[in-house]
Simulated assay, not measured.
Amino acid sequence: MPHYNAQCHCGNITLSFGNWPTSLTSCNCSVCRRYGTLWGYYESDSVTVSVLRQPTTAYQWGDGFIDFHHCPECGCVTHYTSTDKSPTQKVAINFKMVTPEEINNIQIRYFDGVDSWKYLND
């Protein structure tokens, strides 16, 4: 199985995954709009997080159900993980960590995380 990578600016954090997502999510909630992220969603067992020097640090907001991970060296938001302990735990990779050419043809879905909690372009 081929592996693809998303990497922070300084190369400290690399996320490896086996396939490109069919769509990416741009959320306008108070956190995501500030981070400027494009999320691709995976099962936690299909993503490998590799650390070169220092592990990520995490930030929780609101209901505390998500840990937003960032590189402590360059500050890039690399991914988020759900904090629940269910067997189908999710990981969202920030696809701003890959080159723009790699994601040019992936559909971007716009999620209204401020008001309706619905996708706006479905």
Rank of each mutant, 00 (worst) to 15 (best):
Y59A: 02
A92Y: 01
A92P: 00
D115E: 13
C8E: 01
S23E: 14
P55Y: 06
S44G: 06
T14H: 08
E102P: 01
K85L: 15
N5C: 13
H69M: 09
C10F: 01
Q107P: 03
H9A: 00
N19R: 15
P87Q: 10
Q89V: 04
G36S: 00
C74Q: 03
T83W: 04
R53W: 05
T99L: 11
S82D: 14
S26H: 15
C32H: 02
I93V: 04
C74V: 07
N5L: 12
M1G: 13
V91C: 00
F17H: 06
W39L: 00
C27K: 09
R109G: 05
H79F: 06
V49A: 05
N28G: 00
Y35V: 13
A58F: 09
G18F: 13
V47H: 06
D122E: 13
E43R: 15
D84H: 07
T22N: 14
I103P: 00
E102R: 12
H69W: 12
P87K: 12
N121A: 05
S50E: 12
S26E: 13
Y110L: 03
H69N: 14
V98W: 00
R33W: 09
N121W: 06
E101T: 00
G113W: 04
V49W: 02
M1I: 10
E101L: 08
S86T: 12
S23I: 07
K90E: 15
P55M: 02
Y110Q: 07
E102T: 02
V114D: 11
F17S: 04
H3L: 15
D84R: 08
L15V: 03
I13N: 10
L24N: 07
T81E: 14
S82H: 15
L24F: 00
S30Y: 08
Q54D: 11
E73D: 15
Y110C: 01
M97P: 03
